[in-house]
Simulated assay, not measured.
Amino acid sequence: MHTEIRPAGDDDFFGWLPLFDAYCRFYETDLDDAKALIVWNWLRDEANPLQALLAVDEEGTPIGLAHYRSAPQTLTASVGIVLDDLFVDEAHRRSGVARALIEHVRERAAELGTGGVSWVTAADNTEAQRLYDELATRTTWVTYEMSA
């Protein structure tokens, strides 16, 4: 199977939406129309740092997504990339699509001359962690969240 990795374009909303919806469901978060449109508008706004890649199959159907953004890294005085969301349609998992998306983000980081790519995942997302452990170094950092 040939998969193309490319930036999401203006005409990709209806291909991106089912993937983002499935990603939200995976993390037990409801996706309503308002939230979907807000995120899509962030992705399409050139002033917003959030960007999207799509993995598409031979027919041009999106089968995976990656949302990422550049972020200053003060300890290294460089700019890194944060991979916020990564999702591959269940029927296409274990076929190299997630790896290709992550590698594409890493190439983008290299273009920026940055400190690399970082991301977090749920502790129980062990299937994804097998791939992540092959591609990156697991850190000792602990993540905290605070409500506004």
Rank of each mutant, 00 (worst) to 15 (best):
R138G: 12
E90S: 14
D33F: 09
I38W: 07
A8H: 03
T143Q: 13
Y23S: 06
T126W: 05
Q129V: 04
S78A: 15
T114N: 09
A98P: 02
M1P: 13
E90Y: 05
C24V: 02
E134L: 08
E90G: 14
H104E: 12
L86S: 02
I5Q: 07
D84F: 02
T137H: 14
L65M: 15
L17P: 00
E145I: 13
R44C: 11
L86Y: 01
L131M: 12
D45N: 11
A122W: 11
R94M: 08
A22G: 10
T74S: 15
V117W: 01
A47H: 08
V79N: 05
A148D: 12
I5W: 05
T121K: 09
R99Y: 05
A110G: 05
R106S: 09
F26T: 06
Y27T: 07
I102D: 04
V88S: 08
E58H: 12
R106T: 05
D89H: 14
G64K: 08
D45A: 04
A148M: 13
A128P: 09
G80D: 07
R130S: 10
E111G: 08
F13L: 13
S95L: 14
E103N: 14
T143K: 11
R108I: 04
E59K: 10
L50F: 00
D84S: 07
T137V: 15
L37R: 15
E111K: 04
A123I: 13
Q73D: 14
A55L: 06
M146D: 03
A47E: 10
E134F: 02
N125H: 09
T126F: 02
G96W: 04
A52Q: 04
T76K: 10
A77V: 11
T137G: 14
F13N: 04
L43C: 09
G96V: 08
E111H: 03
A8R: 01
Q129E: 03
A110P: 00
V39E: 13
V39M: 13
A55R: 03
C24K: 07
P62H: 10
R130K: 12
V56I: 12
A8C: 10
N125F: 05
E46N: 01
A47S: 13
V117C: 07
T76H: 11
E107Q: 12
T140G: 15
T140C: 10
R108F: 03
L53T: 00
V82P: 00
D57I: 02
M146Q: 11
A109C: 02
T76L: 06
P49T: 01
V105S: 01
T3M: 12
V39C: 07
E46Q: 03
A123K: 13
G80Y: 01
T137L: 13
A71S: 11
G96N: 07
N48Q: 12
E127C: 06
Y132W: 10
A36K: 06
D89A: 14
Y144G: 12
D45H: 00
D85I: 00
G116V: 09
H67T: 01
D11H: 14
V97H: 02
I102S: 07
L19R: 04
Y68D: 00
A100K: 03
I81S: 01
I5S: 07
D124V: 07
G115S: 15
T29R: 14
V56M: 04
D21H: 13
V120R: 03
L131I: 11
L53Y: 01
A100W: 01
L53D: 00
G64N: 10
D21F: 04
G9N: 11
W141V: 10
Y68R: 01
W40M: 08
H67V: 00
F13A: 11
I81W: 00
